[in-house]
Write a protein that binds this DNA or RNA. Structure first.
Lengths: 198, 198
DNA sequence: TAATTTATTGTCCCCGTGGTCAATTTATAG
DNA sequence: CTATAAATTGACCACGGGGACAATAAATTA
């Protein structure tokens, strides 16, 4: 592994700090000063490594996404068959490390800004495109051609919907219910079979 | 109809103005000054009729919800049978007047703040509770007892998911796709039948 | 060791914000 | 018409935010 430069390290530390604050305080509450403090650095350094606040938040978006992506990769590697592949991708989105109210809410906060931030939109598009291209081959193998597109949309929409609700932290949806619901959906979309294991 | 007091009128005007700005500029961009200007009033008046900014945003939340609720009521009134009732409720959420990127995004913005605002959370809870109580009787009539709960969660999650995606304004989801997906979901959840008409 | 680059700090500034308030206009009622 | 109350304004303030920058410390290289 290439030795990390100071810049890489600092950017990473700051991004992680910002991610934490974002989860706790939302976008408005994610202030340069707070991020710096959390990272144990001065405020000035933040703008030394990031062009501006948006640049920092973009890094947060990429980080959050990278974490989830790694989880997907890890699970897909262990998955067997097309059905298993789909289930692995989905299950990653509900892994205990990611399916947490604060994290869902952090995503919600970022998503809410997408229409007013070109780069956010770009990143979001990339994320969705990858999710899609992960899903499609397996779906094509599992479903008649005419149903593939709809299944991809449906699966992602269901994930998003459960994330959104969970991100509200109203306690009106438990992890178990979300899991069960997702199972149920996959079962009908792909044909009944064993569920997604947490 | 009771004659509206000045206070009622002003509050309504200001709330509508705030709702507009929220759709265009998000929560951070929804500033007291901009709201006042949009409503053609002075900034001072805003805080004469609302305790503070949060109070105004709560009113926006209630307004947005009331508009949607009315649409639901209107459609449910015309609906026939339990199945028709469910479809009417769902269809209201995709009516052209409501299923618009700006509106979906406005909701997203408000939802993102729920964990950090008690009153937002309260309102959100009420909204969900009503959605649920609207849905449940019909679902109970249509499904075996064991599936009712899951169906209610699933329907709302799917709606939320499609709203979220649409609110991103990335053009990756058309109204037609959303409609079709919702149809598809209802068909499998309730048993195949005619779809939701726009 | 000296020179130079890089990392880091702390101070400073400007601006927009939410929010307060006394002054003023407009409506209401006696 | 006058007095009282309500509606509305605009000036004002304190605060915190993002961002710029010169000064300093640390590290690197010659």
């Amino acid at each position: 592994m290439a030795r990390a430069s100071i810049e890489e390290i600092r950017r990473r530390e700051l991004t992680e700090a910002a991610y934490e604050i974002l989860q706790e305080q939302g976008i408005a509450g994610t202030t340069l000063a707070k991020v710096a403090e959390r990272a144990g650095m001065s405020k000035g350094i933040v703008l030394h490594y990031f062009r501006d606040k948006d640049d920092l938040l973009e890094a947060v978006m990429r980080l959050a996404n990278a974490l989830l992506r790694d989880e997907v990769v890890r699970r897909v590697r262990r998955a067997k068959g097309d059905r298993g592949r789909v289930e692995a991708i989905v299950a990653a989105n509900f892994a205990p490390a990611f399916f947490k109210p604060e994290i869902c809410n952090a995503w919600l906060s970022l998503c809410a800004e997408v229409p007013r931030n070109r780069e956010f939109a770009r990143i979001q598009r990339v994320i969705h495109a990858r999710m899609r291209s992960n899903l499609m081959p397996a779906l094509r193998a599992l479903l008649p051609a005419g149903e593939v597109e709809a299944a991809a949309i449906g699966i992602t929409a269901m994930i998003d919907g459960l994330w959104l609700r969970f991100g509200l932290s109203l306690g009106s949806l438990t992890r178990e219910q979300a899991l069960a619901e997702m199972d149920r959906y996959l079962a009908q979309a792909l044909g009944a079979a064993d569920g997604v294991q947490a």
